[in-house]
Design a protein around this nucleic acid. Structure first.
Lengths: 340, 340
DNA sequence: AGATTAATTGCAAACGTATGCAAGCAAAAT
DNA sequence: ATTTTGCTTGCATACGTTTGCAATTAATCT
């Protein structure tokens, strides 16, 4: 009904001051007398005025919007991270323009372009890779980018990940100490740095004990693919007695398959270890041994980094790795002498 | 390095046309000759120009941004819905400004205000209630609101939900047909219409068979509260042999508690039924009987409604209910003659 | 060929705000 | 009393677009 937009000019007229005065009252750093402030605030209150964020963004060149690109939301890790990121950024007065994009170059390129159209102050990508051409465009547009839970070598982009190699090494140690002889790995997607780093750390960790995995299969971060990989492993002549799965999300599928298709007992028949420690991992139905990705600290680091780069465009990018502990639960045999 | 923003004026100069011409080339409805179009496109390409969405938004009054307010992301239903909403809106050329807010009046009020500041074209709320004062402000600002998976009586706001009463009635029928004698309900938060509707439907459904629930406990949409409710139910003299839980998320906690704290077998000792049919419900570890909320159709309806209201501000609001089927799995006793 | 119509284009005025500049003014310093 | 200092304030401009208007040009019709 009342289709009119109330502007700073309206407030100015009612308060008997200039438009600039109104603007200054609503601009944190600006100077205004006690008297003007109260007059303006009263008038604004009466008219229900609030500054137009878009107009403000255009003039200042700062939109206070952070673009967030995320691929999959069915892996519980990402909604959790998203929630935390959102809260942390809201506290700092930023807002999140969100895009879901499948992990293909075209989709991501398209989405990133649209983000840039909105003059976002910064971009956070969660679980997606980026074209080098695209990173170039962001750099050209002067938009900082931070990759969350994913890194990209030689991109010159900041990234925040957990210590994937080291985490996978811990898992190798744990499984070997548990006396497993046939150890397999259902890996995260080979197209992701996270997947590759975990493979590398795991193989390296096994090598330290002069062991090699009986098999390494790409699980593509998919339940279906991981379930099939499990079947393939069970069909092997040297059937594994331990499986490290590249993330929790896939590990749940592996557990379901072992228990309900093969009637196997975990960890008596097979030990299973995941990676991430999503909330679901602690639920009694799974009780999954896993390496924790410290979401809170990763989120804090991400927010710090992106804001720092927004504040100082010449600040060098950085690759942050945060170590997480092995969380010992009941899905993998616990070596003698390890304390839960 | 190259800190300069390329504007339509730059393109105009390079192409040897006026700034308006450039604008028209990038404005769908506008008229421009073949020749100008190619000249402008070439120049734009060369300079890497794209129209500034913020400036465009300010002048047209349409930001093509939809505000999305969501409370919790640990219930898998919401990330899934979010993903679908995001995709559907992206396809229509809209973008999502997301806010996570705890389900308290102050938090929601604050968040909604900030959304309005950004001149969003519409607002979708998922799983949060709203102040009547706030709905008033939105109406005053001429911003359409659609509530997703929640309704609000007398608010005059559009809403999209599943047929909660009817769904709960189906569950009552199913449990009674299964021959259960002591039926309990761990309900969704009483502060939500969804929670209340499901209670009403369930009690009504039981009443049709001349039964009443042995207990109705508010599970507050929380795992912990639901687990405790389960313990309380098990301590009852007339211990229930069937529990309808207000949503899947809580039902998982109930299952975990029954199985791992009480060593009970489902459905032999107790039948458990949830509501939502999130992906997790079909995983072998839970295999939960539940009523499906047809997310895709709910999302489609939500998008349709919000866009329709944006297109025509005088369009009457509507409350849409979409019926979903009972998905029969193994967590509840299957009555003779029911076909899975 | 002349007249009517349609399409294209540039000019200029918006949209709602922030901010440099100079003027005003009161208080403090000399 | 005069100067200095510091704080407020209004004026006017800018941000990067879209769009009504009028003018120009091209196309169609009689």
């Amino acid at each position: 009904m009342t289709e009119l937009r109330v502007t700073s000019l309206d407030v100015a007229k009612l308060a008997g001051v200039s438009q600039s005065a109104v603007s200054r009252v609503f601009t944190p750093g600006a100077s205004a007398s006690k008297e003007t402030i109260t007059k303006v605030r009263k008038a604004a209150e009466k008219l229900g005025y609030r500054p137009n964020a878009l107009a403000r963004a255009m003039i200042t060149g700062k939109s206070r919007i952070i673009g967030l690109v995320v691929a999959y939301l069915d892996n519980q890790f990402y909604p959790i991270a998203l929630e935390r990121l959102s809260n942390a950024l809201q506290d700092r007065g930023y807002h999140i323009l969100i895009f879901t994009a499948t992990n293909t170059q075209e989709a991501i390129d398209k989405v990133m372009q649209e983000l840039i159209d909105y003059q976002v102050d910064g971009i956070i990508t969660a679980s997606v890779g980026m074209t080098s051409e695209l990173t170039g465009r962001c750099a050209a547009a002067g938009i900082p980018v931070v990759m969350f839970n994913r890194a990209q070598d030689g991109s010159g982009l900041s990234s925040v990940t957990s210590a994937n190699e080291n985490g996978a090494r811990k898992i190798a140690d744990f499984l070997v100490a548990g006396g497993h002889s046939h150890i397999a790995h259902i890996a995260g997607w080979g197209g992701s740095s996270t997947g590759r780093d975990r493979i590398r750390g795991f193989i390296d960790g096994l090598a330290k004990h002069e062991k090699t995995p009986v098999a390494v299969i790409d699980g593509m971060y998919s339940r279906d693919v991981s379930a099939q990989a499990t079947r393939d492993l069970m069909a092997l002549p040297n059937r594994p007695d331990a499986i490290f799965v590249g993330n929790d999300h896939m590990a749940f599928a592996v557990l379901d398959t072992l228990r309900h298709e093969y009637n196997m007992s975990v960890p008596d028949d097979v030990s299973v270890i995941g990676f991430d420690d999503v909330p679901l991992a602690s639920w009694a139905a799974y009780d999954l041994t896993t390496v924790r990705q410290p979401v809170n600290r990763m989120v804090d680091a991400t927010v710090e980094t992106i804001l720092a780069q927004i504040g100082d465009k010449n600040r060098p990018t950085q690759k942050i790795e945060i170590d997480g502990p092995l969380i010992i639960r009941s899905s993998a045999r616990i070596p003698e002498g390890w304390h839960t």
